[in-house]
Design a protein around this nucleic acid. Structure first.
Length: 554
RNA sequence: GCCCCCUUAGCUCAGUCGGAUAGAGCACAGGUUUCCUAAACCUGGGGCCAGAAGUUCGAAUCUUCUAGGGGGCACCA
């Protein structure tokens, strides 16, 4: 719908301007009475053309000329041009939606370009918390969205298996192990304290007995560190799988060191002139690209900072030839955006070839009261708990009902207690309902001695004249999906899908209550079934992007 | 101290790169089922878009300042 209008407008505005205009804004008007789609383009051209907006609007309208597409074109207010589509055009579009399905709903804005999305990348030192879950839901939905929009998408998880954190995990387990063996050993001050630490140490004790009792950590670090983080990594993978989030590639930090890629990255930057030595340390000149200060990559004690492998990692991404990179980080890392984009530019890529999406915190409430979460004390609600409690679909849907950069509150009591009135069920229910309408239609056909499923197979032969105003409202809502989809993909904002689905489901539920789909009149029934099918196609597509099931029965 | 984000209905939040009378869900009050699923529907009250000034045909949206909330500012990860 928007696509067709845009075609008309580009041509007409081009004729008025005598040159093509790049961006023409098209939006559905707030007040439905004003029409189906609207453009303020005449007003934004006033300065350029030095004419009153309404005059420009008139010129554009006459340049469009008569067309069967529109039922009416109005100029209103200060200079809006409001388009009302013709009944026949809308029906033709609905026909297209039903017969072409998904290809009608999407737009190929990626044109085969490749894009890598790195997300979650939680340290394998403990279970995933809700923030990770939010990142997982967003990353998965975004990759679905972008791959539907014609990008080749790769989903990657970066494993922080080399740094201080996994070592600390090993020490924590080691300390617990010593205690189990009856050896006194100080627990590291900032060590990990969850129950899982004890579980792992017990497992090691069962396997190796007292073999490491009383030893120095350095003698046993490899088995403890490696066993522990691999164990945790396995749990992360399991959690993600059960959450319905899958990755294409897993990049290990250790491997970057082992392959010499960290050293190569530093050499590369040195050759490009962005490395210097000062105060006994090695620095990356990130201020050359607008960062606040230069960053140390090798400390004066000879150790790499965490930043060094990050550079190597992103250099590797660049070398793999993606057209665009997306990192999804927790908002507490926003201070690193500047230096990472400096790295990208130092490697000769445009700044915006790396886009960092920040995911704000999830705060958990229980019956309105905030739940204190302390990772230190090992007291925090895990994604696993919430997922087991309210289900993966509900959890994902809730995470995707907000923009990623705004704080999210989840009240676990509310999510549980109100599960019956949960927005995800509302949308899924609409889908299931439509399915049962089709079941009903089949039964009626059989009862009438007709071949069952005949109606269902001839939906595209629906007669649009049967549609009343409310049905046409639904049709228009459906035909707005492609525009919403395109904008969501361009903005990298899956939450727009969530909102749209709730609106569409709401409209459908209302319609369902007011009108009976399966009637005694064949023509009418076929038309209404066609409309239901179209709603179902759109719901299914939207839910698929969100990673939420579209059940046939509930 | 410096930087970033946030502030919209009682609560949680949308608001499409400046557009027409600012929306939804929840909560609250009342109603709907001989009928394709009541996980649904209908009706109702609710707002100085934190505050002030500016930019222009036009501001919740852009700029500046103020107030409040969150986060970040390491040769820590």
């Amino acid at each position: 719908m928007e696509r067709i209008l845009r075609g008309h407008l580009i041509e007409a505005v081009g004729r008025v301007l005598a040159e093509p205009m790049v961006t023409i804004e098209i939006t559905p008007p707030k007040d439905e009475g004003h029409g189906d789609l609207s453009t303020p383009v005449a007003m934004s051209l006033t300065k350029l053309l030095k004419k009153p907006p309404r005059k420009i609007a008139e010129d554009i309208v006459s340049a469009i000329g008569p067309s069967g597409t529109f039922g009416k074109i109005d100029i209103a207010g200060p200079g809006f041009i409001n388009f009302t589509f013709s009944h026949s055009f809308l029906c033709k579009e609905l026909h297209g939606l039903i017969s072409s399905g998904e290809s009608f709903l999407t737009e190929n804005i990626g044109r085969g370009r490749s894009i890598q999305i790195e997300f979650v990348s939680a340290n394998p030192t403990g279970p995933m918390h809700l923030g990770h879950g939010r990142g997982a839901a967003l990353g998965a939905a975004l990759s679905n969205l972008l791959s539907e929009a014609g990008y080749r998408v790769e989903k990657e998880f970066y494993i922080n298996d080399a740094g201080r954190q996994v070592r600390l995990l090993g020490i924590s387990v080691f300390a617990k192990y010593q205690t189990l063996c009856g050896v006194e050993y100080p627990f590291p001050e900032d060590g990990y304290r969850g129950d899982y630490i004890e579980d792992i140490s017990r497992e090691i004790k069962e396997k190796h007995g007292d073999a490491f009792a009383g030893k120095d950590f350095d003698e046993a670090s490899v088995p403890f560190v490696d066993f522990s983080y691999l164990k945790m990594l396995g749990l992360l993978k399991k959690d993600l799988e059960d959450f319905g989030v899958f990755f294409d590639t897993w990049q290990s930090e250790r491997e970057l060191y082992a392959n010499g890629e960290v050293a190569q990255a530093i050499n590369d930057l040195r050759e490009r002139g962005y490395i210097f030595e000062e105060d006994g340390a090695t620095w990356f000149r990130s201020t050359a690209f607008g960062d606040d200060k230069d960053r140390v990559i090798i400390k004066k004690d000879g150790e790499f900072t965490y930043f060094a492998p990050d550079i190597a990692y992103h250099r590797k991404k660049v070398a793999r030839g993606f057209d665009e990179l997306i990192d999804i980080w927790g908002a507490d890392h926003h201070g690193y955006v500047g230096r990472m984009q400096a790295v990208i530019q130092a490697l000769g890529c445009p700044k915006d070839s790396l886009r960092v999406l920040l995911v704000q915190m999830v705060s958990l409430l229980k019956g309105g009261q905030p739940v204190q979460m302390s990772k230190r004390a090992g007291e925090f609600i895990t994604l696993r708990e919430v997922m087991d409690d309210i289900g993966a679909d509900t959890t994902k849907f809730l995470f995707l009902t907000r923009r990623s950069d705004s704080h999210l509150e989840v009240d676990i009591e509310v999510a549980k207690a109100q599960s019956a009135e949960n927005p995800v069920y509302y949308v899924q229910y609409a889908h299931a309902r439509i399915n049962s309408i089709f079941e009903k239609a089949k039964q009626e056909e059989e009862a009438a001695g007709l071949p069952a499923g005949n109606l269902e197979q001839s939906l595209t032969a629906f007669n649009g004249d049967c549609f009343n105003d409310e049905e046409m409202r639904l049709v228009k809502k459906l035909l707005l999906y492609p525009m919403m989809f395109k904008n969501a993909a361009l903005a990298h904002e899956p939450h727009r899908i969530t909102f749209y689905l709730q609106e569409l489901a709401g409209m459908f539920h209302t319609y369902y209550h007011k009108y009976k789909v399966v009637t005694q009149e064949l023509e009418l029934t076929r038309s209404r079934l066609a409309l239901c099918r179209a709603v179902q196609i759109v719901l299914r597509h939207g839910l698929k992007i969100l990673g939420v099931k579209a059940p046939d029965r509930m």
